[in-house]
Amino acid sequence: MTVRSSPPAGGPPVVYDFRRPMTLAREHARVLEVALGTFSRQWANQLLASLRVSAQVTLESIAMCAYEEYISSLPARTTMVVCAVGPNRRPGLVQFPLDTSLTWVDHMLGGRGVPDSVPERDLTEMEQLLIGDLMGKVLADLDYAFSGIAAVDAELRRIQHTPQLLQATAASTAVITATFTILVEDHSVTATLMLPAEGLLASLRERESVETRSAEEVETERMQRELLDRAVQQSPVEVAVRLGPIPIHPREVVHLSVGDLVPLHHPSALPLDVVVGDRVLAQAVAGTNGSRLAGLVVNVKENS
């Protein structure tokens, strides 16, 4: 079932598919926002060092969606830096306009880097090497930005230009996407980052479970647990020694009278059951203790 939520002020309606809930928890989004904010500042520093012109990278938004939804939103021709991330080496992606790549290459080769001065085309092998060297440093900063959340260990694999031909993962796979605005001198463009959601979300959940209580709170909880255990162990319970049960018809029970004999079918050599409630804890034989009947335990049930 797909429904449309009420349109937010100043924006179009948002489609939400209940079959594929792709929503980030607010706490997770906040942690990712901090990490990606650090990444954007480091990215700007790498551009400044490589292009030797003023550069600024600003994080605009974070979302979770299906891979198919993300890849369909990209332009037909663009620059896609494909990388492998995480322990399972799942695919990640950094994307920015193709003409931006050409402008950056022009800057790195000592040119003026005028936007749209070079006809849009695929990067040559030499240009891919230059962009790859720059993005290798940027991906290293991605590792640094996420060091407190998960081991990203991003490794550049290749550069591609056609999103429709990139089958990086299954269409329904959940991914984390971030949108950035890159300002180089006076020219502003939009870039995106895609990371697999599975590993990041698992790390964020583990991060939530890390002990955040003070030593005093931990000690108080330990003492309370000990008191509870002691109280349970010292609480009295009723223990019974019984013969084995026998099946009997209701009509026989109804017609019981004084003097009737009820056969128990319990062999005299078979021990009796020692029970608490309905649980058999041990077995015992009948005996005496002074003037009282007693049960001598001869066998204790394991895992009782």
Score class of each variant (00 low, 15 high):
253 V>Y: 15
28 H>W: 02
93 L>H: 00
81 V>H: 00
80 M>E: 02
68 E>G: 02
251 R>P: 01
135 M>A: 05
205 R>F: 13
153 D>N: 13
27 E>L: 03
39 F>Y: 15
17 D>T: 03
276 V>T: 13
91 P>Y: 00
147 S>W: 07
297 V>G: 11
228 L>N: 06
127 E>V: 04
130 L>H: 02
225 R>A: 09
303 N>V: 07
158 R>E: 15
214 S>Y: 03
226 E>F: 03
189 V>L: 00
265 H>L: 11
46 Q>N: 08
276 V>C: 14
250 P>W: 01
256 L>Q: 12
96 F>I: 04
252 E>R: 13
11 G>P: 00
259 G>T: 06
104 W>F: 12
302 E>K: 09
129 L>V: 14
49 A>T: 09
78 T>S: 10
254 V>P: 05
144 Y>V: 12
192 T>Q: 15
181 T>H: 11
117 S>T: 15
210 V>H: 14
93 L>C: 11
48 L>K: 07
282 A>I: 04
70 Y>N: 06
132 G>Q: 09
71 I>P: 00
198 E>K: 02
203 S>N: 13
43 W>Q: 12
63 A>H: 04
258 V>Q: 14
147 S>Y: 11
275 V>P: 01
258 V>F: 09
232 V>E: 12
286 A>Y: 10
71 I>V: 15
234 Q>V: 04
160 Q>I: 08
97 P>C: 01
76 A>L: 12
84 A>D: 15
216 E>D: 07
298 V>K: 13
23 T>D: 04
125 E>K: 11
217 E>W: 01
160 Q>M: 08
146 F>P: 13
39 F>S: 11
88 N>A: 09
178 A>S: 14
182 I>W: 03
44 A>S: 14
268 S>D: 06
162 T>A: 10
131 I>S: 08
12 P>V: 06
63 A>V: 03
294 A>W: 08
33 E>K: 07
69 E>C: 02
182 I>R: 01
65 C>K: 05
225 R>K: 09
256 L>I: 13
283 Q>Y: 15
192 T>A: 12
189 V>D: 15
75 P>T: 03
31 V>L: 03
96 F>D: 07
113 G>R: 02
278 D>E: 15
292 R>D: 04
161 H>I: 03
275 V>S: 13
253 V>Q: 11
199 G>H: 03
82 V>P: 01
59 L>N: 06
97 P>N: 04
115 P>T: 04
123 L>C: 08
223 M>H: 09
38 T>G: 13
61 S>Q: 12
242 R>F: 05
180 F>L: 06
225 R>D: 11
134 L>N: 06
1 M>H: 13
218 V>W: 01
262 V>D: 10
80 M>G: 12
104 W>D: 04
137 K>T: 13
157 R>P: 06
31 V>F: 05
125 E>G: 08
45 N>W: 01
7 P>W: 05
32 L>E: 09
273 D>P: 00
4 R>D: 10
36 L>Q: 11
121 R>E: 13
13 P>C: 08
163 P>G: 04
27 E>Y: 04
160 Q>R: 08
234 Q>G: 09
89 R>L: 12
74 L>C: 10
300 V>D: 08
224 Q>C: 02
143 D>S: 15
102 L>Y: 01
11 G>T: 12
91 P>S: 09
158 R>S: 15
252 E>C: 06
212 T>W: 04
57 V>Y: 00
22 M>T: 10
